[in-house]
Amino acid sequence: MSRDEGRRLLLVEDNDINREMLQRRLQRAGYTVISAADGQQALDQMRQAKPDLVLLDINLPVKDGWAVAREASVDPVLQSIPVIALTAHAMESDRQQALDSGCHDYATKPIDFPNLLVKIETLLKS
């Protein structure tokens, strides 16, 4: 494994099955993964655990992914953390909305995992 050991990712996903699956695969890929199941938890975790990168589902209870991304992008502490939006919405307008809301990248479900890893590495290095 050539990946940086100990890089910490925050995975935000409300669907238990999908969260568990992605968490396991990311751990296998060598990342330390912490998770959140709704938008508010996501912001709290970003502040407390200070992850290196956030994988953010958009359809979240309490506070949706767009709101989380917007809030993080204007927060002086959080705005430096790169965010990748994960969504089952596959329209072009959704992609644009992700970038407009302050996300740094965008991945459509079903997730193309190797491609996602490339995106994560690119953002972590920059």
């Binding site: 669907n15 099955i17 999908n18 699956m21 992605l22 396991r24 695969r25 296998r28 359809n59 089952a88 919405h89 596959a90 329209m91 459509t108 479900k109 079903p110 997730i111 995992f113």
Partner: peptide, 25 residues
Amino acid sequence: LANVSHELRTPLNAIIGYSEMLQDE
């Protein structure tokens, strides 16, 4: 249509994700 697409993708995400993961493991 957007909702149908979304609803189809959520279980597909799990099916493909778990299958790939099992294959890897």
